[in-house]
Amino acid sequence: MWRIPVADSTSVPKTALTALQQGGVIVYPTEAVYGLGCDPDDQHAVEKLLAIKQRPVEKGLILIADNYGQLLKYVDDAKIPMDKRADIFSSWPGAITWVMPAAKNTPKWLTGQFDTIAVRVTNHPTVKRLCQELGKPLVSTSANLSGQDTVTSIEMAKSEFDQQVAFYVDEPLGGRTQPSTIKDVMTGKIFRG
């Protein structure tokens, strides 16, 4: 009988997907900057990401997805008024992050001190592929220490994080010059322009 070897935590992942499935944190390209990402359902991985970034859990995190269906587990879709849906879906896929009511079971390691969750459906081909392969969204936060300049190259990311990150996805950014706009779906308030 053939046995499939089980990777231990010291093994080097061969792909970004393997790293994510093993609870690792990856660096990957987004629309404007490189991001730190992990499996949003893996509390240990999210805590590792927050420690690497030196970000307090209370601030909450963004989820980035291939399609809205991947976000439904985390979003209380029933609370989103019909008249707001045109704004949301006309902006996606794209670089607009919407702050939406969080589903009741969405973990606090994602929402932080809030009863909302920030989510985005991306048009970046690399991120779309990662989310398709993982079958769910990724945590998406800029690949920099909290309060520091954003990272716009893999070399900068490697210099900043070295071996703390399980895998570096060395593919191009999406061509935007600014990180995604963040808007509240209920009020229209812009948190980041």
Results as ranks from 00 to 15, higher is better:
V119S: 08
V46I: 08
K189T: 14
W98C: 08
Q132P: 04
D149Q: 10
P125S: 12
L17K: 12
H44I: 06
V127K: 06
A16S: 14
A102L: 01
P125N: 12
K84D: 07
E31I: 00
I4Q: 15
F114K: 13
G94R: 08
S153L: 02
W109E: 04
P40L: 00
I64W: 02
V139R: 06
A45F: 03
R192H: 06
T122Q: 10
A51H: 13
V75E: 06
M156T: 14
G175E: 11
L138W: 03
V25C: 07
P101R: 04
A32T: 10
M1K: 10
S180R: 06
P56C: 03
D83V: 07
G175Q: 10
L138S: 09
V12Q: 14
T30Y: 01
Q178T: 13
W2M: 12
I182N: 11
T181C: 04
G175F: 09
I4N: 13
I88L: 15
P40F: 02
E31P: 02
G112F: 02
K189C: 02
F191I: 10
M156C: 09
P5R: 12
L63W: 06
G37R: 03
A86L: 05
T122L: 07
G23Y: 09
L130W: 09
N123G: 14
K53G: 11
V57S: 14
I4V: 14
I80C: 04
Y74D: 04
Q163T: 13
R176E: 15
A78F: 01
E155P: 00
M82Y: 02
A95I: 00
I62R: 08
G24S: 11
L145V: 14
E133P: 01
A78Q: 14
V57M: 13
L50F: 03
R176Q: 15
W92R: 05
Q178C: 05
E133G: 00
T126W: 02
V27L: 02
A118V: 04
K183F: 00
